[in-house]
Amino acid sequence: MDSKETQFKVLSFIMYKSKNTKSLKNILLYDPTSYSSIINKLLTLIVTIFTATAILPLILVLSYVVIRGSEQLNLNLLTQLPQPPGDDLYSGGIGNAICGTFIVTGIAATIAIPIGIGGGIYLAEYSKQGHFSKFIRFGTNILAGVPSIISGVFVYGTIVSTKIIFGSNFSALAGGIALSILMLPTVIKTTDEGLKLVSDDLRKGSLSVGASRFITITKVTLPAAINPISTGILLSIARAAGETAPLIFTALFSFYWSNSPQSLLEPIASLSVLIYNFALEPYQAQNELAWAASFILVFILLLLNIFARWLGRLSR
């Protein structure tokens, strides 16, 4: 009796097992006509189309600028001064605008980097996460969203129209200040975030060997966060270098080289304002110059961005 019963149990178990494997195999087979796989394919297709549409403007703008701009490329373009409108055959180069962009952005960086890094260090290392630091973080976020033309108008109102800097009105210095306002929030934010990423263990380790807070920050935490911080700085420089609106109100434009210290107090040329001015001219030669300047500007910004990404990747 007993052995028969066990035999039956074993047999039924085997049958159950084999039955189960069969149905399991059926379940595991991929069925392309099932509801879920059709929906899956459909959604993938839709998302792909949207992504392609999102990238399309970038590709179109870049290729148009490259096609129109690269036609004008030659050495004169980089070394000559632009000619005033009127001569339809020869429009000169954009040498002073390239230099001007570097000068104005350099001024902006000199102002924004120390202040921004200092502010970021305060937020991440010194502040006690109270109302004051919350207010500063909030303010930084707001400042990051302020339209660039507002910073231009602000500097126009406070510095240009009041002639507060050695009696000069439109100047490279004023342009740099306007751009530095735009750079500041990015630098503060990336410094703050970068320092927050540094492990607290590192700070404790440094303090426990008798380092002061200042030494801990300058010798241990800042070096550990240098990659995200420099990436943020480069991205903010790239943003500032491409701005037009703040410069129209502050740096204006110039047809001459800015090659003396005094010229920092005079209007200065920049690529973005040159594009704005010359693209609106009714003369063909000037328009072509604007295209060439667009190409150079995009090229510079692209280089800055790639460099920034590369720096960011180093840290990983």
Binding site: D201, G205, L207, V209, G210, A211, V220
Partner: peptide, 20 residues
């Protein structure tokens, strides 16, 4: 406290060498 920590050193739970 900085001088205190020079006299009384500390080793932590997680090894935390400097990235140097």
């Amino acid at each position: 406290p900085v001088e205190v920590r020079r006299k009384i050193g500390m080793v932590f739970q997680q090894p935390n060498p400097f990235p140097k």
